[in-house]
């Protein structure tokens, strides 16, 4: 479980996050949603301290991450897997080396065991024959899948995904969503996904936090997001033509 308390962040005069609090539960897919520029990715990066928040606290299973010392933070970070928007694969390493990187750096195990683990996760994300390919040879969807494989190779307790569907076609998006949901269940991770894709929201949104201009406006699940009673949430949800058609059909 991850808990955030009163996270605020400004860049110069622009306040990007205003006192955001919430709980992200273990074994569930937690979504942070909202329109572009509302501070979703900033909030995600504040949670893992890739961006230092101005105020607020973050707890990983009741361990105070914000006020931990450097060594404690490193220990917690080693339990984190993260998928970045563009995959963030190392250009100079092939798929196999990219996925093995966290094991090479952090795990103490024989090389054969590492290789088995790499093959296992590549198989899990459906990339069993791509071991020797370089990142430049991969499609957008494949890069995301390699990114997911790298994020889960160390069996993380916490999985963070920043816009996993951006730039992907609808079919690949659904595959990636299903993969994230299945991995969350299989590894019992606390998963946080930042997205603005309504297909993802309706597909995997166990727990949803809606951000609007730096404020948390609503929290719920995919079952009640269509009747939240909050205008900004409705505007966001029903901006999608398919969702709009569904609403008309229901009424």
């Amino acid at each position: 479980m991850i808990e955030i308390q009163n996270i605020s962040k400004s860049f110069g005069d622009k306040q990007v996050l205003r006192s955001i609090s919430g709980v992200f539960e273990k074994g569930r897919t937690n979504l942070i949603i909202g329109a572009s520029g509302t501070g979703k990715s900033v909030l995600l990066k504040c949670i893992v301290e890739l961006i230092k928040p101005d105020e607020g606290l973050v707890f990983f299973d009741n361990r105070n991450f914000t006020e931990s010392n450097r060594h404690e933070k490193i220990e917690i970070r080693r339990e984190i897997g993260m998928l970045f928007q563009g995959g963030a694969l190392f250009d100079s390493k092939n798929v196999e080396e990219n996925v093995r990187f966290p094991l090479d750096m952090l795990a103490v195990m024989p090389r054969d065991e590492k290789q088995d683990r790499v093959n296992l996760v590549l198989n899990r994300v459906g990339l069993q024959n791509a071991n020797k390919k370089m990142p430049s040879e991969l499609s957008g969807g494949m890069r995301k899948r390699v990114g997911i494989a790298r994020a889960i190779v160390n069996s993380p307790k916490y999985l963070f995904c920043d816009e996993p569907n951006s730039g992907l076609d609808p079919q690949t998006s659904i595959l990636i969503d299903e993969l994230i949901q299945a991995l969350t269940a299989d590894y019992d991770t606390t998963t946080i996904v930042v997205t603005h894709d309504m297909n993802s929201v309706m597909g995997i949104g166990d727990n949803i936090m809606f951000l609007y201009q730096g404020d948390k406006l609503w929290e719920g699940s995919k079952d009640n997001i269509t009747h939240s009673g909050v205008k900004e949430v409705d505007d966001f949800v029903f901006a999608n033509k398919v969702m709009m058609a569904m609403r008309k059909e229901n009424t």
Partner: peptide
């Protein structure tokens, strides 16, 4: 391309 962030987030 966030490769440095990917290294940092691993601790």
């Amino acid at each position: 391309t966030e490769q440095i962030d990917a290294i940092e987030v691993m601790g």
